[in-house]
Each structure stands twice: as C-alpha cells, then as structure tokens.
Design a protein around this nucleic acid. Structure first.
Lengths: 191, 191
DNA sequence: GGTGGACAAACAAACGTTCGTTTGTTTAGA
DNA sequence: TCTAAACAAACGAACGTTTGTTTGTCCACC
C-alpha cells in the first residue's frame, strides 16, 4: 500500500466531506483526522484552527459559483439563453462539488460574523447576475412584464440550491435531463 | 416581575428556537437552560435527553405539514385549486412555525437512524399529496401532459421549503403576496 | 542537514448527564 | 381553614468523556 503524505488541500477536501455530512459542529478534529488516517492534533501542521477549515471550504464554494456566473454571462445572448447558461453552470457546480456546495449552503452560518458577512456579499453578488437577466428579459418582453426580478430570482435559485438535497446521480434522471427540466420549469414560470 | 415555572412545552419551544438558530450540535443543554433562565441540569426534570428534544421538535414539524396537507386536500377541486391550497397551507405552516420548520428541515438528519427513518417516511407521504395533484392535473389536461409529477413536485417543494431561508415578514412582500407569487410561478411552470 | 508532516502526551474548557437536595405549589384530611 | 403529605421544578456539585488546541519530539525526504 502506497501512503502519500497529506497536503493542506487534502485536509480541506476531507473537511468539506465531513462538514457536509455531519455539519460543522457535528465534526470533531479527531473525526477529521481519522478520515485522513491521522491524529486530530496532526491537522494543526496544515491548518491554524477548525474555523479556518470552514472558511476555506465555504470560500471555495463562493469562488466556484462566482466563476460559474462569470463564465455564463461573458458572452451575450437572449435573456432566455443567458438564464439557461446560468442554470446549467449552477447545476454543474453543485454536482461536481457536492460536499463543498452542501457546506457552503448549510454551514456558512456557523462562521464568525466577519466571514459570514463576506459570504452574504458573495451570495448577493451571485444573485445579482440572475436578477439582471430576469430584469432584461422582463424589459425586452421575452419574459412576462410582471416578472419581479427580485422574487423570481429567489424562486429559481431555490430550485437550484435544492438540487444538492435530492438529486441522485445514479438515478433515472441524468444530468442533461436535470438541467433541461429545471430550465424548462423556470422559463415557463417566467414567460 | 411575574416568573412562571416552565413546562415541557416551554423547553421544547426554546429548543426549537435554538436548534433553528445554531443547529442541534451548536446548542448545548446549558445554552438551552440559559434561554429559559435555568441551569442546564434542570432541563432533565422535563426531558430525558437532548436527543429527545430534537425528536419532539422535528416530530411537531412533521405533524404540522401532515395536518396542512390533509386540510388542503379534503375538499375536492381542480388540480390548480388543490395545488394552490397545498401551497397556501405550506407557506402558512412555515411562517407560523419558523423555528420548528427550520429545525425540521435542517436538523432532522442529526436524529438517530430510527427516528430519521420515520421523518423520511413522513416527508415522502407529504410529498405524495403534491404528486397526486400534479398527476391528476397532467392526466386531465389542466396541466401540461409532459409534466413529470415526481420531478415537478420536487421543484415546487424546493421553492416552498426555501421560504424559511429568505422571507422577511416585515419586508415589502406581505404574506398573501408571497403565496400568490409562489402559486403563480408554480402554476405557470406546470401549464 | 534542514524542513515539514506526523506523533503522543497533555491542557483547560465544555460537553451531556446523574445525583441528592431544596424549593415552591397542589392536594387531602382533620 | 389549617396542616401535612405529595409532587414537580429547579438547584448545584460532580461524573466521565470529548472538545479544540499546544507542545516537544521524532522521522523521512529534499
């Protein structure tokens, strides 16, 4: 058996896994050590504190969503096309990084107020990408005029963020089918 | 100052509040005691264990949703009417019992496997009420034929369950406006 | 031969819970 | 109506364990 030494990245990845599964407060440093074949105390060779790990995992979640929104909106297209791109990007981030996303969505509130504040700002910024598209679609008539960008963005993001909670990657619904089901549902809700 | 003695109900209610705010593992029995002006140890006059409190709170959440679905579907009506009634009921349960609902939605996974199993069953049963209505609507043509009751039910419930996370009862959107916004979004997504 | 990863022991604090006791409030009988 | 028994709620100390973290030492690899 080939045993490689662990890097900080390994520790953060394992933390994401356990925080997603058991929650931040439900995971001890010894649990986390065991996950990596280490003692709990050995983690402090890689990390300054437990809180530090949460900051890293949640920060990476924020970064992923941010990058996805930037990618989806850098080219131009109709409101429907842009929304479809945002939705596809979001689903891909969720499914390619389930543990990080679960931790980002459910455990960010365990951060100290300073870091929590930053996460809220990142979320607001991400939300704005959706809101702008809905706004544009309502203005140019490709969506219903009565679409309320603020509220309807929340509805779309509600569906997207819930994916982590129920989607089974080995179930009947494959990834493209999931993306198009959500896209269709959202677009019909808006047009 | 009139100081009344605490009942088991008071303890469960306070537990719901703190579990919702800080999570189950983020709440200690001493925290909970402080919330009620008691010592942590005094709680054991009312309750057998901390786990017991979570069982009670989550159980009440399950009961509330179940009762709401029963109420909404006991009279008959069109699929759209029934869905609207289910949606209104759900929103009312969420807004009238935020702490219980938050704990039900976010902390049920901290239950031991036996109780967790029961919660999953209760959720499945509740979900079926929605699914039956979507099925009926797709069958009688009041919804689109291509509506997939399973997936689309999840989408509607995603929007409903997220309400707890963002809705501000003192914000611009009042309760009837919230209900009709969700109902409209859902019905458009399905028709 | 220095550096960084891991160990092992130890720390104080906090954890859930138990225990025997005290307190305050009902209840029943005289 | 007064009293005494019964009861439930709360206390406060203590329990054994687990928590996050610190420290000093060792070993393997550049």
């Amino acid at each position: 058996m080939v045993t490689t030494r662990n890097t900080r990245g390994d520790v953060v990845a394992a933390a994401g896994r356990l925080f997603a599964e058991r929650g931040y407060h439900g995971t001890s440093m010894r649990d986390l050590g065991k996950e990596l074949g280490l003692l709990g105390s050995s983690l402090y060779s890689h990390v300054e504190s437990k809180q530090d790990l949460l900051v890293d995992v949640v920060g990476e979640g924020a970064r992923l969503f941010e990058a996805s929104a930037a990618m989806a909106t850098e080219h131009d297209g109709s409101a429907a096309e842009l929304l479809a791109a945002l939705i596809r990007g979001h689903v891909e981030v969720v499914l390619d990084n389930r543990d990080i996303v679960r931790t980002f969505l459910n455990e960010a509130r365990m951060l100290d107020s300073e870091h929590r504040e930053r996460v809220i700002e990142a979320r607001d910024h991400y939300e704005k990408a959706f809101r702008r598209v809905l706004q544009a679609g309502a203005a140019d008539g490709s969506f219903r005029r009565e679409v309320d960008p603020k509220t309807d963005t929340i509805f779309v993001l509600s569906v997207l963020n819930a994916v982590e909670r129920w989607y089974d990657p080995v179930g009947e619904l494959d990834r493209p089918a999931l993306v198009s089901a959500i896209t269709e549902f959202a677009l019909r809700g808006l047009t």
